[in-house]
Design a protein around this nucleic acid. Structure first.
Length: 460
RNA sequence: UCCUCGGUAGCUCAAUGGCAGAGCGGGUGGCUGUUAACCACUAGGUUGCAAGUUCAAAUCUUGCCCGGGGAGCCA
C-alpha cells in the first residue's frame, strides 16, 4: 500500500478505515496500556498522534522507540477524543525501520541556531528548519510560475566561465590540472595543459549570457547557483548562493523597477497564501512583526528615489553616520538602513547611481554622470535586488570597458550583440536566499539554505 | 580581513582566585487520554587547545582554534 502523507490525513474531512504513514518519531509518552507517539513525515509542520496499544505484536519494541526513530504505522484514522488534535491514528501494526539511540542530538526542546548549524545533516528534522525548506521549495516554484505567467522563458546559463564576467568580486578557479605539479612555461602556469586550454572559473552571474538570450527570445530568466570567493564573514553572504536573473528586451529602467517590485510583491503574496501554516511558526517564534511586515510589502508601493535624492535626505538627516556622505561615494549599509527603516519605513528602490561606482555594462544616462542602475532595499536585509538598464550603444560600451580595464577580446561576443540589432534592455538579480530571509524573518543567511558554504566551511 | 562579545555535562546556562552546579535531555522505577506530560531516583566533566602567573586558575596573562554580533567586499 502507498503511504499517506500526514498533511493530507490531517486535512481529511472524514475518518478513514485504513491508512499507512511513514515518518520519524518526534516524541513518545506512555500510558498504562498504550503509548502516544507523535510522528512527522516532513509533509507539513504538524505531527500526527498515533495510539499504539499493548495488543500490538511488537509492543515491547514500540515502547523503546526514541525521538528520531523511523517507523511505518498502519491503522485507522479516527477523531481524537483528546484535546489538541482533531485526528489520530489507532495503530494496528507498526513497522520499525531504524532506531535512533540516545546519542541523537535533537531534543524535544528548542535548540540554538548555532548548535543546529553544526548538525546541518539533521536540522531539517526540526520544526523550524523543516518549515524553512518547505517555504524555500514553494518559493522556487513561485519564481517559475511568475515568469511563466508573464511570458518569460527559463534559460540555462553556464556555471563554468572563461571570463571574470562583470568584475564582480573574487572568483573560484576551476582546473583539471594537478595542483601539486602544475605545468610551467617560463615560470608561469601553462594553461595549454588545462581542460579548457585557458583559465576557468565558477560564474559570478549569468547576466551577460542571459542578455544574449533576451536579445533573441525577448523576456528570459535564469535561476541557479552563483559563486563568489570573497572572504565575507557576515550574516548575509555565502560563497555559494542562488540568484534569479531576469533579462528583458525593449525594457527601460522604469519598467525594470516596476517589474522588480511586482516580482517581490508576488513572491511575498505567494508565501502568505501558500505557506500560511509554516509562516505562522516564524511569526510566533522568530519575528513577531513578520506578518505585519509581509502584508505591508504585499500591499504598498515601493518608494522610488534617485541616488542624488537619497544623498540629500541623508545629508539633511542630522544623523551622525560612521561614514561621510558625499555625492559620488557608495551608500553604506548604515545609510541604506536609515533610509529604509527610519526615514521611509518600507521597501524602497534607489536608482541612477554615479557611473564611477557601478559596473561597465550599466547604461550611461544623458547627464553622463550617472547610470541607469537600481537597487531594491528591504527592511532588515538591505539590498535584495540589484539591476540596471544595460548599455546598448556599442561605442559607449567599448569606452566603458576600456575605462574599467577590461580586454575587449575577452568580451567580443558581448560587444557583437550591440553591433547587430541592439535594443534597449534591462534586467536585475534577486538574491534568492535573502528573499527567504525576508519572508521567514530568519536573520542569518546560513539558516535558509540546507548546507551553507562560507569561508573555511564546506562540511557536509 | 577589521572591531567586538563569547567557548563549563548531550543541549541551554550558573559558579567573578578557594570542594564544578542547575534546568532540560538520557537511564531506571512509578503515575496518567497524554500532548514542551508529571513524580522519584540515577549516570554524566581534560571548564576549546597550549603555555605562563599563583600556595591555589573555569576565573588572571599571552598565543592559537572555533562560534555569535557589527563593518568592509556584495546578492
Amino acid at each position: 500500500m502507498n503511504r499517506n502523507k500526514i498533511a493530507s490525513l490531517l486535512a481529511s474531512i472524514n475518518p478513514i478505515d485504513f491508512v499507512c504513514i511513514s515518518g520519524w518519531v518526534r516524541t513518545r509518552r506512555d500510558a498504562k496500556t498504550f503509548s502516544f507517539m507523535e510522528i512527522n513525515d516532513g509533509s507539513c509542520r504538524s505531527n500526527i498522534q498515533v495510539i499504539a496499544d499493548d495488543t500490538l505484536k511488537n509492543y515491547e519494541a514500540v515502547k523503546k522507540l526514541s525521538t528520531g526513530s523511523a517507523v511505518t504505522v498502519f491503522g485507522v484514522l479516527r477523531e481524537s477524543p483528546g484535546k489538541g488534535q482533531r485526528w489520530e491514528i489507532e495503530a494496528s501494526a507498526i513497522e520499525i525501520h531504524g532506531l535512533a539511540p540516545d546519542s541523537f542530538p535533537l531534543q524535544k526542546k528548542r535548540h540554538s541556531d548555532e548548535f543546529l548549524r553544526e548538525i546541518c545533516h539533521l536540522r531539517p528534522r526540526t520544526n523550524k528548519y523543516g518549515a524553512v525548506f518547505r517555504i524555500r521549495s514553494a518559493l522556487s516554484s513561485a519564481v517559475h510560475q511568475f515568469f511563466k505567467d508573464h511570458g518569460f522563458f527559463y534559460i540555462h546559463t553556464p556555471i563554468l566561465t572563461g571570463s571574470d564576467c562583470e568584475g564582480a568580486g573574487q572568483l573560484f578557479r576551476v582546473t583539471s590540472m594537478d595542483m601539486e605539479n602544475l605545468p610551467k612555461i617560463s615560470g608561469e602556469t601553462d594553461y595549454q595543459f588545462d581542460f579548457f586550454k585557458k583559465p576557468a572559473f565558477l560564474t559570478v552571474s549569468g547576466q551577460l549570457e542571459a542578455e544574449m538570450l533576451a536579445l533573441a527570445l525577448g523576456d528570459v530568466y535564469t535561476f541557479g547557483p552563483t559563486f563568489r570567493a570573497e572572504n565575507s564573514n557576515t550574516s548575509r553572504h555565502m560563497a555559494e548562493f542562488w540568484m534569479v536573473e531576469p533579462e528583458m528586451a525593449f525594457c527601460d529602467l522604469d519598467q525594470n523597477m516596476a517589474h522588480a517590485e511586482s516580482f517581490i510583491r508576488y513572491l511575498v503574496n505567494r508565501a502568505l497564501t501558500h505557506c500560511a501554516d509554516d509562516l505562522e511558526l516564524f511569526s510566533a517564534y522568530v519575528d513577531k512583526t513578520l506578518l505585519t511586515t509581509l502584508n505591508k510589502i504585499a500591499s504598498s508601493n515601493f518608494i522610488r528615489l534617485t541616488y542624488t535624492e537619497a544623498i540629500d535626505i541623508l545629508k539633511n538627516s542630522n544623523k551622525i553616520f560612521q561614514y561621510d556622505i558625499d555625492w559620488g561615494s557608495d551608500l553604506q549599509t548604515e545609510h541604506e538602513r536609515y533610509l529604509c527603516e527610519d526615514h521611509f519605513n518600507g521597501p524602497l528602490i534607489i536608482y541612477n547611481y554615479p557611473a564611477s561606482i557601478k559596473p561597465f555594462y550599466m547604461r550611461v544616462n544623458d547627464d553622463e554622470k550617472t547610470v541607469g542602475a537600481m537597487d531594491v532595499i528591504v527592511p532588515r536585509i538591505g539590498e535584495i535586488i540589484g539591476g540596471s538598464r544595460r548599455e546598448d550603444r556599442f561605442d559607449v560600451l567599448s569606452e566603458r570597458m576600456a575605462e574599467a580595464g577590461l580586454k575587449q577580446d575577452d568580451y567580443w561576443w558581448y560587444l557583437e550583440s550591440r553591433r547587430y540589432g541592439s535594443v534597449p534592455h534591462s534586467g536585475y538579480g534577486l538574491g534568492f536566499d535573502r528573499l527567504i530571509m525576508l519572508i521567514t524573518g530568519i536573520t542569518n543567511i546560513r539558516d535558509v539554505i540546507p548546507f551553507p558554504r562560507t569561508p573555511g566551511n564546506i562540511e557536509f
